[in-house]
Each structure stands twice: as C-alpha cells, then as structure tokens.
C-alpha cells in the first residue's frame, strides 16, 4: 500500500503539514517495504489550483491513500475520481511517523 502524507519537511520524522495543496513536502511511504521518500511540492507557491496539482502528484506516484489535515473541494474531487482514499490526522499527531503508525493501527478515519 502506498501512502502519501503532507509534511512540513523532507523527513519522515518531521511535523505533518495540515494543509494538503500548500504542504511543503509529501512523504511517500510503502507499507510493504517500509521504504519512504520525500517529494517536494513544486506547486506550493504557484497560482490557484494547488489542491489539484497536489492531487496530481499523488496520482502520478500511484498513491492509494493520502493523509492530511484537510482537503479542499477540488483536491477532494480529483482524488475521489482517481479512487484514492483520503484520511485525516488524529488530534495528537505530531510527526509523519506518528501518522503512519496510526494508519497501521487502523486508527485513522476516512475523509468524506
């Protein structure tokens, strides 16, 4: 399963970013191999449509689950059309690693 998590820095131990479209980085995590990589969000400083651009990144990286603080309507529609599951952080989440653990423990709720 490939997860994409919005992150403030390019590291699995960095704090999560509550914004999806305007997140500085995404951490891509493969639950089968426990391998992770950081993806810079190149659209963070662009004009409108950052949510869609971020959704496009998730699609291009073949993500199956995207975890963030919130999803705008455009990103929501794009991710939904792509069949990608959206989930939101738990209240006490601080790092990307935390939220991956929460995901594995089945604690996260889908965003609808």
């Amino acid at each position: 399963m490939i997860l994409i998590i919005s992150s403030q820095n390019a590291d699995i131990n960095s704090p999560v970013d509550p914004r999806f479209g305007r997140s500085q980085f995404f951490i891509k995590y493969d639950t089968n191999t426990n391998h992770w990589e950081a993806i810079k969000n190149s659209s963070v400083n662009q004009r409108g449509g950052a949510g869609i651009a971020a959704a496009q990144i998730a699609v291009n990286h073949k993500a199956e689950v995207v975890i963030s603080g919130d999803f705008g309507p455009n990103a929501f529609n794009a991710l939904k059309a792509a069949g990608i599951t959206m989930m939101t952080f738990l209240q006490d989440t601080s790092t990307v690693q935390d939220t991956i653990d929460h995901y594995k423990q089945g604690k996260l709720n889908p965003f609808e």
């Binding site: 662009q46 869609i52 959704a55 496009q56 699609v59 455009n74 794009a78 059309a81």
Partner: peptide, 23 residues
Amino acid sequence: CVEVCQFHALAEIGKSIMIFPQL
C-alpha cells in the same frame, strides 16, 4: 494539456482528464 495549464484547471486522473471550470 495538464502540463501547459498554468492554473491547474486540468488533471490527469487514471485514463481520463478532469476539468475544473472555476479555475
């Protein structure tokens, strides 16, 4: 089309292109 659009009004989702008219 997704590449040239500066306003992210298009997205390539699977085997189709999605359009966001308001953008």
